[in-house]
Amino acid sequence: MKKQFNLPPVPAVLLAIVSVQCGAAIAKTLFPAIGAAGTASIRIGISAFILLLAYRPNLKTITPAQWKIVIPYGLSLGAMNLIFYFAIERIPIGLAVTLEFLGPLLVAIIGSKRLVDYCWVLLAAMGIALIAPWTNDRLDVLGILFALLAGGLWAAYIILGGKISKIMNGGQAVSTGMLFAAILILPFGFLENGLANLTPKFLGMGVALALLSSAIPFTLEMKALGQLPPRTFSILMSLEPAAASICGFIFLQENLNFTEIMAVVCVVVASAGSTLTAKK
């Protein structure tokens, strides 16, 4: 059987980051027409369809132990994306991702045993504090809460993804998980009535969105999670705020003020420092 991905785990994570943030910028342009829930439904629904066709998982062969992890893995994946879309509907993408990083940050704290790692985590936490509601009253409070909730779901995704990658084939795990993510999200798309406004153009954008934001990055991340400890993976993912801010500026003209830029810089420096000082 041919290998489908030959990238080492770190480049795989970096490529996944760029892909996700470009997809998020595309997604936000769809919000006025079909809403955040409608966009999430198209993205996850098409992603699930693509991955099921690509990997054709045999659900009958999945063991009870695998079901016990892959179902919550998929549900956390779906909920994370839906709540994140609710967040970027209200606040800039770069800031939403920076706040969302609180989830992986907690994973990093739990998994760390060295003082230097706590220093990098503290620096990232300082960055997050710079855009907290009490220091930045121009941000929508509900959007901030959605971003923080998405961060908690992101932490669950990292932990469950690491577990399922140890006991289940990566392609089968991500395609089965995406199926349950779609089952969770689709009702919200219909309730919001955004899917009623679908046109061939929006559907085509949905396919591009599904590839960039779900099918490609989640498969790359699943590969990386099988080779990296959750702490290392979560710290690498702290590059997300920088990628998100750049994509938001390029595609959506979302400008950040000085304090907000410093918040992103703190998170990125923490990520770079932790990567340089991490043990092989």
Score class of each variant (00 low, 15 high):
residue 19 S to R: 05
residue 33 A to W: 09
residue 35 G to Y: 07
residue 35 G to R: 03
residue 35 G to F: 06
residue 38 G to V: 06
residue 41 S to A: 10
residue 43 R to D: 10
residue 44 I to E: 02
residue 48 A to C: 08
residue 49 F to Y: 11
residue 51 L to S: 02
residue 53 L to E: 12
residue 54 A to E: 09
residue 54 A to G: 13
residue 55 Y to D: 13
residue 55 Y to T: 10
residue 57 P to M: 04
residue 60 K to N: 14
residue 60 K to Q: 13
residue 61 T to K: 14
residue 63 T to E: 08
residue 64 P to W: 02
residue 64 P to D: 06
residue 65 A to I: 10
residue 65 A to L: 11
residue 65 A to P: 07
residue 66 Q to M: 04
residue 66 Q to R: 07
residue 70 V to H: 02
residue 70 V to M: 00
residue 71 I to G: 02
residue 71 I to D: 03
residue 71 I to L: 04
residue 72 P to G: 00
residue 76 S to M: 11
residue 80 M to H: 04
residue 82 L to M: 09
residue 83 I to E: 00
residue 87 A to M: 08
residue 87 A to I: 02
residue 88 I to G: 02
residue 91 I to N: 03
residue 91 I to E: 06
residue 93 I to D: 08
residue 96 A to C: 09
residue 98 T to I: 13
residue 98 T to V: 13
residue 98 T to S: 14
residue 99 L to A: 05
residue 103 G to Q: 01
residue 104 P to S: 07
residue 104 P to A: 05
residue 105 L to H: 03
residue 105 L to S: 10
residue 106 L to M: 10
residue 107 V to D: 03
residue 110 I to S: 13
residue 111 G to H: 05
residue 111 G to M: 08
residue 116 V to L: 15
residue 116 V to W: 12
residue 118 Y to D: 11
residue 120 W to T: 10
